[in-house]
């Protein structure tokens, strides 16, 4: 294959990298809008049923949510460090940092699982919920919580898989431009940013 064909349709590698990164950022913008629908629903519910919203949010496990915020932020740091390491030409350090980010991501899911299990036991899950709440608006908050965090958890899972892919690929680790690792890290940071807003929307709303 001729040299100029390698980056087709781009003329050179730098431009191809630029395009990849821009494509990723645009994709992330559309992800933001996807979660925007959930946040808009939470906003509407809060404006319509303020007291119910706060009362139902009080059922959430604030400390687990806070711990998860810390876990995810730290995981994001690890992902950023992995990019840093790959650029510095330290593939092993990059792999280790990615692994740490990935494990912290798993820890996040585990904590989330504990939370869900607790909520299931307490009968807060959709369908089992009516008995615990005063009125439908509170049940709705709980349902919205499950939809929002569930959709987020799906994104976390995808992020973990992507990071595993990047950590396993030798070419990705040795790429001094950190293209794959960089784009995976971007995705992971966005998953983090979404959580940063889910946290006050859901958990902090219930603190009296």
């Amino acid at each position: 294959m001729a040299e100029e064909e390698r980056f087709a349709p781009f003329a050179d590698a730098a431009r191809a990298r630029d395009a990849d990164r821009l494509g990723m950022l645009i994709f992330l913008a559309s992800e933001i809008m996807l979660f925007g629908g959930i946040f808009a629903a939470a906003l509407a519910l809060r404006l319509e049923h303020g007291p119910d919203y706060a009362a139902a949010a009080g059922h959430l496990k604030l400390w687990l949510g806070t711990a998860n915020t810390a876990i995810l932020l730290t995981s994001s740091l690890m992902a950023a460090l992995a990019v840093e390491a790959a650029r510095a030409g330290a593939p092993r350090r990059a792999a280790r940092a990615l692994l740490a980010a990935l494990l912290l991501g798993c820890a996040f899911l585990a904590v989330k699982g504990v939370e869900y299990a607790g909520e299931y036991r307490e009968g807060l899950m959709p369908g089992t919920a009516t008995a615990h709440f005063d009125g439908p608006a509170q049940t709705l908050f709980m349902n919205l919580y499950f939809v929002g965090t569930g959709l987020h958890a799906v994104h976390v899972t995808i992020g973990i898989l992507l990071m595993a892919m990047a950590a396993l690929s030798q070419r990705a680790r040795q790429d001094r431009n950190a293209m794959l690792i960089g784009n995976v890290a971007l995705y992971w940071h966005l998953v983090d940013v979404v959580w940063l807003f889910l946290y006050p929307t859901l958990y902090l709303a219930g603190v009296r």
Binding site: L77, A79, H189, V193, L196
Partner: peptide, 10 residues
């Protein structure tokens, strides 16, 4: 917080 993540991490 989001701004910090965007500015430094991203």
């Amino acid at each position: 917080k989001a701004a910090l993540v965007l500015w430094f991490f991203m």
